[in-house]
Amino acid sequence: MFRSILILLLVITNLFGGEYQVDKSQKNIVKFISHAPLDNFEGVTDKIDGYIYWEGTDLTKTSEMYFEVDLNSIDTGIGLRNRHMREHYLETDKYPLTYFKGKIISSEVTGEGIFSVQAEGTIFIHGVEKPLLTTGTIEKENDGYNIRTKFVVKLSDFKIEIPSIMFYKINENMDLQLDFFIKNAADK
């Protein structure tokens, strides 16, 4: 009898959610990509943190997520450009973080341990909060999950001034790509 209960729990709890936090020991990547006429560049960081929480087997049921990126850590490959980003555009002394907080509103199984999800919430950049609807995948990976998503932000929506001087053109739209790992908070 006990054996049966245990087996049942094993099956059930494997499907249940819980709190998952960013696994900083993994190779997490957040990219800010600017396609500019003269100077394409990428800003890259691994400094992402946060959590996702859901209950039961349904990812959309009472789900909650919060992920933040440390903007001081963005590396565009040139120190001077990093400094310009920090001081002139992102003003990281005032706004050191960008974050997304929201919830999963739809989820679809697209493969073994792979979910295609849609999340809605608000994104905060440079002191401005805007609604954001984005899609991504959550894929089972060893003891945790791998989350991948990408979306576009319009810099002027966040009161980020576009430099206009020669040799320094930045695209008004910046692509954000996130590829990071989470694991159960209880395992951290």
Partner: peptide
């Protein structure tokens, strides 16, 4: 260990 019931978020900045 497993969150069969709702739990308080333990993550912090």
């Amino acid at each position: 260990i497993h969150s069969v019931w709702p739990q308080k978020i333990s993550w912090s900045h």
